[in-house]
């Protein structure tokens, strides 16, 4: 198939026209299909070996059902976040990157870092089809790294679980905490110079998230913690809309 309609050489900002290409939809649904196939294989294998593991068929069913029910709330929370990102990445990319393999935080972070290397900003006039394609590629390589580590580390861990567990536990707590905090704080602070509306959006999301986490703990409501990210993003976007309309957005 020759994509003859894409003659603008990547400088168009009509992201959704290429983000919704049939090939990308096919790949997104392909990942869905792979996960379904994997689940079917696993369930059949588990049924067969159940007596050896000391678990009954009824208990397998109960486990499946309670796993499914417990996932309803978190899944809908992910849906809310994903919808907020549709305008930026288009449906197929959001389904695979935000909904499945990755998460909103890592994927938008990776996309932002990729766009920056091209001198562009996500969402504004510099966010061309070219920038989208590079950002999408970089996000996907990022997700692939997680899977690659899993593929390499799982057999190793299975064999020498105890050896790796003896690595200085501080390495496993201090180093990832430092990496994670620095990455997100850096990307967040990088938004501040863009405009007053960006700063207001960042702060609103932070405050709403803090409120959700505080109330979740205070009132002992776990669902508030799950929905915190979604609520914070939606509330911040409402405030952003008001601030943008009031002329606090970036000077075009």
């Amino acid at each position: 198939m020759m994509p003859t309609q894409l003659v603008e050489n990547g400088s168009s900002t009509n992201i959704l026209s290429i983000a919704n290409m049939p090939v990308l939809w096919a790949c997104a649904l392909g990942v869905f299909a792979v996960i379904i196939l994997q689940s079917v294989i696993y369930i059949r294998a588990a049924r067969k070996a159940a007596p050896a593991a000391g678990i009954t068929g009824a208990e397998l069913k109960t486990s499946f059902r309670s796993g499914a029910v417990a996932a309803i709330g978190p899944s809908l929370a992910v849906v809310l976040v994903a919808i907020a990102l549709l305008a930026l990445f288009g449906t197929p990319a959001v389904l695979v990157r935000i909904g499945l393999i990755g998460s909103a935080a890592y994927e938008t972070g990776a996309a932002n870092i990729a766009a920056t290397t091209m001198g562009a900003t996500l969402g504004d006039a510099t966010y061309t089809q070219q920038v989208f394609a590079v950002a999408f590629f970089a996000m996907s390589i990022g997700g692939a790294m997680w899977m690659l580590t899993t593929l390499i580390a799982t057999p190793l861990l299975k064999r020498g679980e105890h050896k790796l567990a003896k690595v200085n536990p501080l390495i496993m707590t201090v180093v990832p905490a430092a990496a994670l905090l620095a990455a997100f704080i850096s990307i967040g602070i990088g938004e501040i110079p863009k405009s007053a509306a960006h700063l207001i959006t960042l702060l609103t999301a932070g405050v709403v998230m803090a409120l959700c986490l505080f109330l979740a703990k205070r009132l002992n409501r776990v669902w508030l913690r799950e929905w915190g990210l979604g609520f914070a993003i939606v509330a911040a976007l409402f405030v952003a809309y008001a601030a943008h309309t009031a002329g606090l957005g970036p000077v075009a």
Binding site: V81, G123, D124, Y127, L181, F184, L203, L229
Partner: peptide, 25 residues
């Protein structure tokens, strides 16, 4: 358009707070 321009700071504002509170470091 607004969602596209501001969704990154919206995600990051929330994620930073979440990371700080859940890490407790």
């Amino acid at each position: 358009d607004v969602a596209r321009i501001y969704v990154l700071p919206a995600v990051m504002g929330a994620v930073i707070v979440q990371a700080i509170i859940s890490m407790k470091q």
